[in-house]
Design a protein around this nucleic acid. Structure first.
Lengths: 200, 200, 200, 200
DNA sequence: TATGAATGAGTGTTCATTCAT
DNA sequence: AATGAATGAACACTCATTCAT
């Protein structure tokens, strides 16, 4: 990649970072191209030489970050661990990754939520695709666990949704409200149960 | 209530329903008063004789529905059940209620999410207040369960967040993606565990 | 005039008085039909059964009041006085009349001014006509005074405009700013001169 | 001042001139931003890149012109003339100046009138301040004339109001109705008297 | 006849997008 | 390639006017 290209990528990156800050704070509609231009120290017109329109700028940044998050989290599936260990590791990595992207989390979940549950004209089908991919891998882990007799015999999708719902709720609370919990607690809760086995 | 008043309420309801459809599909910012007027088959000016401005129209619709949902779900806490039975009942009622309000669910969670995790100047503090109230009652149930030795000794907040996260994820999926599950499965999962007790 | 007609006129009067208060305080554009309805304790629709539109309501009230003022002031010309006495009497009557209509004065001069100096689409040609009539009579007084050798030989229009300008300025100041002056002072100034005849 | 700046000023001037024509003909409220855009041959949005809102556009145009008029007229007070000569000169300069600004006169007097005699929330306090300043200087001239025994012993305010009222009425008539008069006539009338000293 | 709910054209203002420089 | 002035469609909201009751 020559200097030209490197500089081009560098400029694009600066725009994306500036846009991320603003979109994350104020949302898509409430952020204007003029503001992004000011924040990134480019002219409005310049933004349009990198992105065909506001929507694509938004989609691109969201997708890029989502890809980074996805990459980190999904890498767990390639570690060759057994289902139980995979889940444990997944919790750790999810916590670490989402905290690392805490500025973007608000935007991320909101996009994801819109994409999954059907807001018309959603801005990020790409993000949805990544998530579905992740979910599919997660389901495979649960399926394997069930096959191997480690997990009770329930639908892998059911397990996946429950796992994701629980973990995401805890992580969001920890990022936005400062609620503290460890990955051990979380995985124990999910795996263990809330019922004491030895009863009262 | 005379005919006039009844008609007034009827018209107001028609506007609110039309607005609900649009806000739910496209969000607050992306829905224009003109569209609401068209959808409700009133003139723009008429909207303003029922609501002082767009924001209040939005808040009114969201708060009304949220109150109805809250009322139904929270009523479970008044049934005088023990913690375990309360949780079971809660899952049933949540599923039934949220399905009954399926048009509104998208908007509901999105408002709640914005209110809890972000976005200054949220449009619905009332909704947040209702949810926090619910969460407080749920925590009390878990606290009681822990006290009585039914549940393992963990923070009630931790339990509540996990419970809510898991159930909401399952219910949302069932509403929007047609994923089917029973309340028994859900509560068993939460209470029971994913691990077989007799292991492999 | 039967009861019906009397009542009709009475209602019309109430509307006009209410409208006058509002137009006078806030101007034509800033006063809404709804406000006039509220102030007059009629429904908006009722206003339209007395006046075909807002503009005519405005014109009618302005014209009515202008006619009253005009009648009182113009009556001086019918008193059969000589030019000098007419001017003196005119000053007295103008002061008294305009003070009596002080609520309306702001509106009156503003309409007159617009009508005379050509704001397009002026709302009150009738008021202009009345004033021109008055001015014509005043010119005749000056013409007579010049003919009789009482006044220096200048154009009656010149005299009239100067007289009106001076008197109106003083009267407006007295009404709006509380500046006090007597009709004697005013007429002496106009007739006398500012120069001492015996010089320094 | 570079080409850019010059062009900026030129465009701003074109907008101001267009707005002046419209405000002058129809008044503030009755003139819409769209009309100003059309008249100035710019887009609506362009207007807002020169002025933050309609009101400021109005104030700017009014205040600018008022300042120019004020500057020219008030300069007479700095010529070091005696009271009598000052008044003579003032009449000449007022006539010349107001004729030079004849497009603006209608608006000028209307703003001045509103500011002096009425209307809360006037749009141009600056214009009023300029006029009060002028009036104060004029009063000082009359006070000096009285002190020196040139003028009869009357209140300077009284003299000033009468002078202004008379002259403005004449000048307005000459601008709007084509009535012709010379400064000599006007000042003679004011100073001299309408009464022949040698009577009939 | 009197009412006021309903209408929709019109308002001031914003902002994504274009394009001459 | 980069700029930002210019554009005009779109927005939330107002209000003179109409008309079913």
């Amino acid at each position: 990649m020559g200097r030209k290209e490197r500089e081009f990528e560098q400029r694009k990156r600066e725009i994306l970072e500036a846009a991320l800050r603003l979109f994350s704070q104020k949302g898509y509609k409430a952020t204007s191209m003029r503001e992004i231009a000011k924040e990134s120290e480019f002219a409005v017109g310049t933004l349009y030489s990198f992105f065909p329109n506001k929507r694509r700028l938004y989609e691109e940044i969201v997708l890029e970050k989502a890809r980074e998050i996805s990459k980190r989290v999904t890498s767990v599936f390639d570690e060759g661990l057994d289902p139980l260990a995979t889940l444990k590791r997944l919790v750790e990595v999810k916590i670490a990754t989402l905290h690392a992207y805490s500025d973007f989390i608000r935007l991320y979940y909101s996009v994801l939520w819109e994409a999954r549950f059907g807001v018309k004209e959603t801005l990020s089908e790409g993000v949805l695709a990544l998530y579905e991919e992740y979910l599919a891998k997660l389901e495979r882990v649960f399926a394997e666990g069930v096959d191997k007799g480690i997990f009770k015999d329930r639908s892998p999708r059911f397990y996946s949704l429950a796992f994701e719902g629980m973990m995401n709720a805890l992580i969001q609370e920890s990022i936005h409200q400062g609620f503290q919990f460890s990955s051990e607690e979380a995985i124990e809760l999910f795996l263990g149960s809330v019922l004491r086995e030895d009863g009262p």
